[in-house]
Amino acid sequence: MTRYGIRAALAGLAAVLVVGAAGCGDGDSDTGSGAATTGGARSAAVSGTVTVFAAASLTESFTQIGKDFEAANPGTKVTFNFAGSSALANQINQGAPADVFASAAPANMKTVTDAGNGEGTPATFVRNQLVIAVPKGNPKGITGLTDLTKPDVKVALCAEQVPCGAAAKRALAAANVTVTPVTLEQDVKAALSKVTLGEVDAALVYRTDVRAAASDVDGVEFPESSSAVNDYPIIVLKNAPNKAGAQAFLNWVLSDKGRNVLTQAGFQAP
């Protein structure tokens, strides 16, 4: 008689799986670029979708730059994929249809150019420095890297694969401090969010991230961050579906208009 049980369970499971599958769709961004590449690189008018893969730390500034770019180039649409630079580099090398790649560190850019997926040489457009992000008001009274070793201080770091994690490792080495983090996050915004949520007492993130989240977190500067400055390179990708648009966007980022947005966000000029 247990047959009934099994069969009913299976019927239930079937229903569950159908429902589950409906929720499984991975929100893959639509990158359907409208315009074909305009043959001449010097073509004044650009159009269509420009797909930009950019480091998570560029989220706020590039979103603004994208809006400015769209306003100045009617008919264009800039779509972004913000994530950890290592994840982006991997996606590009796996054939993701991207036009521009902006990395938070040369190492991840090198992954892309070594695979022959870059066009020309990357241009460094900004630099960024680490600070200690703490919850508003700095409840644990953190003043420097050595405070992060205290047993009652929970620390989030970026995973070493992503630029902020690599930079944190350099900074901690320079300060000769060993920190045992509670978590290694997959990008800088994830590390920051752990501070915003109050789950950790401190995280090593970029100065620009703290500025973007100024209503929730405070930043504590520390001298050793000068030995872990990240250069941000940007490049047009070899298999860019919209090469003209990609070049125009890159030029815009390097222009005064682009640089103004970036410096206001807390980035330093290269």
Binding site: M1, G5, I6, R7, A8, A9, L10, L13, V16
Partner: peptide, 19 residues
């Protein structure tokens, strides 16, 4: 847990209550 609950509930509903 929902997977288990739904599976077990289905089994219970299908089982013969006469026992």
């Amino acid at each position: 847990m929902p997977f288990l609950v739904i599976a077990v509930e289905g089994a219970l509903r299908g089982a013969d209550t006469r026992y």
